[in-house]
Design a protein around this nucleic acid. Sequence first.
DNA 1: GCGTAATTTAAACGAACGTTTGATTCATAA
DNA 2: TTATGAATCAAACGTTCGTTTAAATTACGC
Lengths: 235, 235
Amino acid sequence: MAAIPIKNRLSPKAPQDTPSRILEAAERLFLQHGFAATSMRMITAEAEVNLAAVNYHFGSKDALIEAVFTRRLGPLNRQRLGHLDRLESLAEGAPLKLETIVEAFIGSAFVNEGSANDGARLFAQLLGRAYSEPSGGVRDILYNQNKEVIKRFKAALKKALPHLSAEELVWRMHFVFGSISYTQSGTDALRLVAKYELSDGSYPQTVVKRLLPFLCAGLQAPATMHAPTVLAKVS
Amino acid sequence: MAAIPIKNRLSPKAPQDTPSRILEAAERLFLQHGFAATSMRMITAEAEVNLAAVNYHFGSKDALIEAVFTRRLGPLNRQRLGHLDRLESLAEGAPLKLETIVEAFIGSAFVNEGSANDGARLFAQLLGRAYSEPSGGVRDILYNQNKEVIKRFKAALKKALPHLSAEELVWRMHFVFGSISYTQSGTDALRLVAKYELSDGSYPQTVVKRLLPFLCAGLQAPATMHAPTVLAKVS
DNA sequence: GCGTAATTTAAACGAACGTTTGATTCATAA
DNA sequence: TTATGAATCAAACGTTCGTTTAAATTACGC
């Protein structure tokens, strides 16, 4: 009666130890309500643990937010860099095809390794949400965890898009992140535009298939630009 | 000594009557900290009015949030529809050039009428922020105020991009909104990617000039798609 | 100038916030 | 079995939240 704790047999939603349950509950709630609007009491109730458990295991609410990200960001970025490594070693120095680069980036963002559980997809949405958070803390965490990946993909894109200046490339990566993050942060806005529900289930594959040509075409747009005319002339 | 109130001569930051000062203070603070993290005491302190003034003039914090948007969204969307009307009557039934449509949309979003004050630019950033708010209230406000404009631009785009199915078009508009909203919500993320500061001042024109070819090229990408291969094969 | 309505003010309301405490329960090794 | 450190628990901490109140002040038609 002491070897195997009775706690292990609980509701299927409740996974394992207290810290993990807190992390998963927090992930869900942060996504639904944002960081500021999610209280400790909401988190501990959802995780079915004591109110004091968060402070005991993580120290503070801010530390919990950071832990939610670091838990998933490491594997995700290792996966992204792994894809890029393999692709570049296969190409043997030649520039990679643009579509391949973008697919390695957004593919990793939308369908994570071992995609059996949907935790990865939830986290992808949360990532999209976090990038538009005003609070500096969250952004700093994301920046530090992502800067290496961004550097690598920027270098790969630079080789694949030699007609773009460094400044233009930065802008376009910015636009790409925008589309990805906005799409990740939920299909609610999309449902507002469309009348019909999306046929889910195959959601990650669908969205990657839709995003890829849009982003590649945008990235490949001509570099030079004529000045905007319409707004100045009309009215 | 009773005709002209002495209050009119105040700091240049403080504009006119109490409700307006509250609206502008709230706009600034919501942008900086988000909606949930901005308290009534922060707002009333920034506006230099009494704490009870928000509830007296607007009723509640939620009503204030709504008022912040409705004050600017009406003129902005009237401006967008006006541009589109003029363009379509000029074209006399023929499909508009894609670039023209997109420019009318994002141009209005970034440089507002009477752009002397930067209130419009602040609001554009706040709009981008609001689109990624989890709370349903803000999204509903934006949806109701924007659905007419979206419908009109969707129709115009449909004519300009006949090779896209209705579903594809919805997806691509979604991606476009993502890039716009992400770009609107601040250049902070962009500064993280780039090392250098952007030469500001001409910011709205610059960003429109950069965004336009990216979005147009993305929208014009071929409709049909081949299945993603890399992620399935590698690893 | 007076009276009435509109506005501003200081103070307080109950509720919820993040966090801390001290006792209690649990797992595990001696 | 007992001693020990980890974990959980109920309860309370002080603070801040959005909102309300009632009195004081202001604006303005008469």
